Simulated assay, not measured.
Amino acid sequence: MTQPPNDSTTGTPRTTAARGFASDNQASVHPDILAALATVNDGHQPAYGDDAVTARLREIVRRHFGPRAEVFPMFNGTGANVVSLQAMSERWSSVVCPESAHINTDECGASEKIAGLKLVTVPTPDGKLTPELIEAHATGFGNIQRRQPAVVSITQSTELGTVYTPEETAAVAAAARERGMSVHMDGARIANAAASLGVPLRALTTDAGVDVLSFGGTKNGLLLGEAIVVLNPDAVRGVAYLRKSSMQLASKMRYVSAQLAALLDGDLWLRNATHANAMARRLEAAARTVPGVEITQAVESNAVFAMIPKGAAERLRKRFPFYTWDDRTGEVRWVCSFDTTETDVDAFTTALAEEMAG
């Protein structure tokens, strides 16, 4: 992705209010989140999660996910995924996941390096696992020469912008259970999936048989902060200790918890995700009218995947930041955020049409 141009006098990147389509990680922080941080920034509170704000977050999380749910605020999504998988597996375990999974492609091998497990990656056209794919790749049980399959990890919404229905997740969970495996969900964009399907968070997780969720906040308006939500305490051990030894235990945890509480206590999580999804659909509809643009994945959340000529992509990227998803094919990804506006989308698709015509 082309970076912001350097200031001609200082050599440092200029900061602008411009919004691009590279990632929801690049979006601003929602004003309600900043307000929540200001509210808790008064006086002293116990450290390491013994504060009143984190206690309140635990109540909110149980309201969404059920009475057995346990929440562990984390700094980032990679940390949430690594600690989750460590708690669900042994050093000789394997984790079955899609080839496109974030734990495989974008976490610098952290799960394998830190947790000592083996990722068994499965090619999929839409980023989604099925019971048939699990059956084909969860093998070697009892073979002393082989890593032992322990966890199935799925992403919601997927890295390709598609979503699992509750029924699809339940089928994956059932296939895992049949083999004595547990289910981890990377929910970096679970809010977008729930908004897309019009179902509560519990329907996609607890009720569908997911054991552990990495809950995403940063992509949905937070300054920083994700969480591990343990839905089935019987599927894990030592999460609290693993979080500390993995350098993910915040001393002033109330500042992470306050953001997650503000997101989940009302409907902010849903409003933010619903808007981002709507902007993606608007972008998709306009892009489909541009000759030569091929939409490559179903637009079910807040991302649009497309094929455009390399030259057009390079020219367009000089005007709006976005990533090339697959360098081999030239497939690009355009991501919308809670703060993406209709004006942003319309300006981008106008520029897309101009560069495709050029």
Score class of each variant (00 low, 15 high):
Leu223Gln: 08
Leu260Met: 13
Val239Ser: 03
Ile228Trp: 00
Arg254Thr: 06
Leu242Asn: 07
Leu249Trp: 11
Thr274Gln: 09
Asn272Gly: 01
Val229Thr: 01
Gln248Pro: 08
Leu270Ile: 02
Ala262Phe: 00
Leu260Asn: 05
Gln259Cys: 11
Val236Arg: 06
Met253Tyr: 02
Thr274Cys: 06
Ala227Glu: 00
Ala250Phe: 00
Lys244Ala: 14
Ser245Val: 09
Gln259Asn: 10
Thr274Tyr: 04
Ser251Gly: 07
Ala258His: 11
Leu249Lys: 13
His275Asn: 08
Ala262Ser: 14
Val236Met: 08
Gly238Ser: 10
Glu226Ala: 08
Leu249Asp: 14
Ala276Lys: 03
Met247Cys: 12
Leu264Phe: 15
Ala262Lys: 11
Gly266Gln: 09
Lys244Glu: 15
Tyr255Thr: 15
Val236Phe: 04
Asp267His: 12
Leu224Pro: 00
Asp265Gln: 15
Asp267Val: 12
Ala273Gln: 01
Ser251Gln: 14
Met247Trp: 12
Ala240Arg: 11
His275Ser: 08
Lys252Asp: 12
Ile228Tyr: 01
Gly266Cys: 08
Glu226Met: 06
Ser245Thr: 11
Pro233Trp: 01
Tyr255Val: 13
Ala250Gln: 10
Gly238Trp: 02
Asp265Arg: 13
Leu223Phe: 12
Ile228Ala: 01
Ser257Arg: 07
Arg254Leu: 07
Arg243Pro: 02
Glu226Ile: 03
Leu224Asp: 09
Met247Lys: 12
Gln248Gly: 07
Val230Asp: 05
Gln248Glu: 08
Tyr255Ala: 10
Leu231Asn: 03
Leu224Cys: 06
Gly225Ser: 02
Gly266Met: 06
Leu224Thr: 03
Leu263Val: 01
Ser257Gln: 07
Tyr241Trp: 09
Met247His: 13
Gln259Thr: 10
Gln248Ala: 06
Ser257Asn: 10
Leu224Lys: 12
Ala273Thr: 04
Tyr255Ser: 13
Leu224Gly: 00
Ala235Glu: 10
Ala227Lys: 02
Arg237Cys: 14
Gly238Ile: 01
Leu223Pro: 01
Gly238Arg: 03
Trp269Met: 10
Asn232Ser: 15
Leu264His: 13
Arg237Tyr: 12
Glu226Phe: 00
Leu268Trp: 11
Asp267Thr: 15
His275Val: 01
His275Met: 04
Gln248Arg: 04
Leu224Ala: 06
Asn272Lys: 04
Ala250Arg: 09
